[in-house]
Design a protein around this nucleic acid. Structure first.
Lengths: 100, 100
DNA sequence: TGACCATATTCGAAATTGCTTATATACTTA
DNA sequence: TAAGTATATAAGCAATTTCGAATATGGTCA
């Protein structure tokens, strides 16, 4: 991978909300927007815009399931490795998926 | 470390010039600005500004040696781990220090 | 001292980012 | 079909980033 490609990815990780979403997706495998929305303290359009950024850059993929959209991490080894490092250094307890 | 602290660091890595500088410092241990300047295709103020950003955020440290300033990576384990991942995925041949 | 280095800082303009509010789309269900 | 739900998109604006040009600082050496 080219250096600019790597720095582009790191730049996307360089926002706390996006980083948190990626960690949640890594931990939970697949989540719909409403689940993310219930865990993160942001407005729906704001979250949607960040998801859009990550989708367009290929870091996440979304599949429509009826009325909802489920997102998961893309198959990007660099992304996964960096997220592993982040997990290791993060004290923040990334909440698991809400279960009823 | 808090998530915002981690994303702040990743944000700084999310610029190709800064990333390249950090990789060079990691590889070469210590370099003066003029060496960096000779390897990177940027103006001196531009490089200096980026160095300033990295210095202020604690990712690098500089020591004055007569007329020149030598920079090296700070002792930041998270930074080192991420850079290792970047190195692993980077096809770009990071040039070693210029020798005469 | 005065003329050079190497590096840093300042300033201003252009581009980008991040957010809010409003609206659109698309699917579901009554 | 109409109303509701989930998600996306658009428009506008403030804040931030990035860079170039100009200038400042501080050390060296003749």
């Amino acid at each position: 991978m080219e250096l600019t490609e790597l720095s582009d990815i790191l730049k996307i990780l360089g926002h706390p909300l996006r980083l948190k979403v990626l960690l949640l997706l890594k931990k939970n495998g697949e989540m719909c927007v409403c689940e993310l929305l219930s865990l993160l303290n942001v407005t729906q359009p704001n979250l949607s815009q960040h998801l859009s950024v990550m989708r367009l850059s290929g870091l996440i993929g979304g599949t429509k399931d009826g009325n909802t959209v489920k997102y998961k991490l893309a198959n990007n080894e660099f992304l996964h490795k960096v997220l592993e490092v982040v997990e290791k250094f993060s004290e923040v307890e990334v909440k698991t998926r809400w279960k009823n």
